[in-house]
């Protein structure tokens, strides 16, 4: 495939490797292009279970593209071409027998801009549950309360579950979206710059939320905020121009990056 041929030699930077058994996601040789325009080049990395893995990198390097590949949101775009494999708990997500809807329930996603549906707060959280069906109202109410509590939103909205979700503030909306995703009990949660549109207080709330969720599921966080990555993530991957440059424990990567390119990016120097 000519679109995937790299302009420069593949970096052989330090790439952290995990035991297969401790990983929820295994990405192998993933390349992806929008038509003629490559966005990811031969990416190989593993995402550990019950940890927060951060993806950092300059704008346009392909972080969102990578996240969307993980729950097959690219299926909608007819011009996307891809190569390589992604395995969720050992199973190829691209395999014909995989139910896409089921996959997307297992790999939840929170987007950069809060996108609650134009319904009540309750209906937003119930959305995914209702799709699955087969749940009594009482049981559903319990799950919804649990999800809203997990997203640290319950106390703020418990009095007005019937109000439109669009009456919430931006930070509340984002937590609502997280609650909505948690309600279907995903195994992996993908967060694409979840706090980029929020004020510092809301950002802190979301970060705390991320740390608390770690015990229940695996998280992948995309962020432009170095401090945030350093604060909440356990492992960090640095991407540049669609390539994985360096991947290691957050501590190491931020205090002692192996590669010049990584150091320049982290310290804010132009390359």
């Amino acid at each position: 495939m000519s679109v995937f041929s790299s302009p420069h030699a593949l970096s052989d930077g330090p790439i952290l490797d995990f035991e297969r058994s401790t990983c929820c996601l295994e990405i192998e040789g993933l390349s992806l292009a929008y038509g003629e325009k490559p966005a990811l080049r031969d990416l190989t990395l593993r995402v550990p279970r019950h940890r927060v893995t951060a993806f950092i990198g300059p704008s346009g390097c392909g972080k969102s593209t990578l996240l969307r590949a993980l729950n097959r949101l690219h299926d909608l775009n007819e011009e996307v071409v891809r190569e390589g494999s992604i395995r969720l708990e050992g199973q190829d997500i691209q395999a014909p027998e995989v139910d896409v809807a089921e996959l997307r329930r297992r790999v939840g996603m929170v987007f950069q801009a809060p996108n609650p549906f134009p319904m009540s707060i309750y209906d937003n959280v119930a959305f995914g549950l209702r799709l699955q069906g087969g749940m009594r109202k009482r049981q559903r109410d319990d799950v919804i309360e649990w999800a809203l509590r997990s997203a640290a939103l319950w106390e703020e909205v418990k009095e007005r579950l019937g109000a439109s979700a669009w009456t919430l503030s931006g930070g509340q909306q984002q937590r609502l979206v997280i609650a909505r995703t948690l309600a279907v009990q995903p195994e992996v949660l993908l967060l694409d710059e979840p706090a980029s549109a929020l004020d510092p207080i809301s950002t802190l709330k979301i970060e705390e939320l991320i740390r608390n969720l770690k015990s229940r599921l695996s998280l992948v966080l995309v962020t432009h905020n170095m401090q945030q990555a350093a604060r909440v993530s356990d492992y960090t991957a640095f991407l540049q121009q669609g390539e994985l440059v360096e991947y290691g424990p957050t501590q190491t990567l931020f205090t002692n990056p192996r590669l010049r390119r990584t150091e320049n990016y982290i310290t804010g120097r132009m390359t």
Binding site: N71, L73, L76, A101, E102, R104, R105, G108, M109, F111, A113, N115, P116, F117, P118, F127, G128, L131, Q132, V177, R180, T181, V184
Partner: peptide
């Protein structure tokens, strides 16, 4: 992003249309 929000929760395209897009 409204459509993607529905899909990301495990809605099929038909469910996305009937439950989110068409009411809007």
């Amino acid at each position: 992003h409204q459509r993607e929000g529905a899909l990301a929760l495990g809605a099929t395209r038909v469910e996305m249309l009937t439950r989110v897009v068409l009411p809007m």
